[in-house]
Computed example of a mutant assay.
Amino acid sequence: MADPTSLTDPLLTDVMAELGDLEDPRIRAVNERHGDDHGVNLTQLRTVAKRLKAQPELARRLWATGDTAARLLAVLICRPRAYAREELDAMLREARTPKVQDWLVTYLVKKSPRAEDLRLVWFADPDPVVASAGWALTTERVRKRPDGLDLGGLLDTIEAEMKGAPERLQWAMNECLGTIGIEFPDHRKRAIAIGERLEVLKDYPTPPGCTSPYVPLWIDEIVRRRSEPA
């Protein structure tokens, strides 16, 4: 599991050994069905991160091992402001498992002052995995800082491209579509209509008590909850 350089790095060696001890073949088997290649319980991983606290240099050394569990731990103990735009761009492009990509964007890039620059770079990238990160950052802006965004233009792009997009990019575009419909009543009718016409994730199996990712149902459910008396 460990990178050869860890042999001269006692702290890294200890942490990698601890991650190795947490490896569970049953968890790995489940994760591999979703495209991930680690067998560490994420609650236990967070416990390790809580104990280590922020350690930017250790985070970089963990990332450099290439090991998925180590990279997940790295993004939990990093300092987002310590990373240049070019470094974050390179990290995303070399992170090919879904969980590492998700955590990298959620815990590092979204908290970085370089987030908007990267959103613009990634949004139209020809690599659908990279583009999905750009859409995730766009959804974050729709939710928190929509000023300056062309929401109608985003809906145009989603309507034209989401149906045929690769899975990860399709999920990211679908989330943006739903978020626009939830947050902006003026665009809600069109967002629902796009969802109904494209039928993306319409048949996605949704456990009881959970909200369907199918946009028309998702928008209706969240709007209904928000309208209920507190």
Rank of each mutant, 00 (worst) to 15 (best):
153 G>R: 10
103 W>Y: 11
159 E>P: 07
134 G>T: 03
203 D>C: 00
138 T>F: 02
103 W>D: 06
142 V>C: 06
169 L>R: 06
161 E>A: 12
147 D>V: 13
155 L>F: 04
165 A>C: 11
170 Q>R: 09
160 A>P: 04
171 W>L: 10
184 F>R: 00
170 Q>V: 02
164 G>E: 11
202 K>I: 00
144 K>R: 08
110 K>D: 09
113 P>N: 08
154 L>D: 03
170 Q>A: 07
174 N>M: 01
122 W>D: 02
106 T>D: 12
180 I>T: 01
179 T>G: 01
133 A>G: 08
163 K>W: 10
145 R>E: 11
134 G>N: 11
127 D>E: 13
175 E>R: 02
152 G>I: 10
196 E>R: 13
148 G>N: 14
116 E>P: 05
132 S>N: 04
117 D>T: 08
126 P>Y: 00
176 C>A: 15
156 D>T: 04
178 G>Y: 04
147 D>W: 12
164 G>Y: 04
175 E>V: 00
193 A>T: 10
147 D>S: 15
183 E>I: 14
125 D>F: 03
188 R>S: 12
133 A>W: 02
196 E>D: 08
149 L>I: 12
142 V>K: 01
175 E>M: 03
125 D>L: 03
192 I>R: 09
177 L>N: 02
164 G>L: 15
136 A>D: 04
180 I>H: 08
198 L>N: 00
188 R>N: 13
161 E>C: 09
172 A>W: 02
129 V>K: 12
131 A>T: 09
196 E>Y: 09
108 L>A: 09
176 C>D: 07
162 M>G: 12
110 K>I: 02
142 V>Y: 01
199 E>C: 07
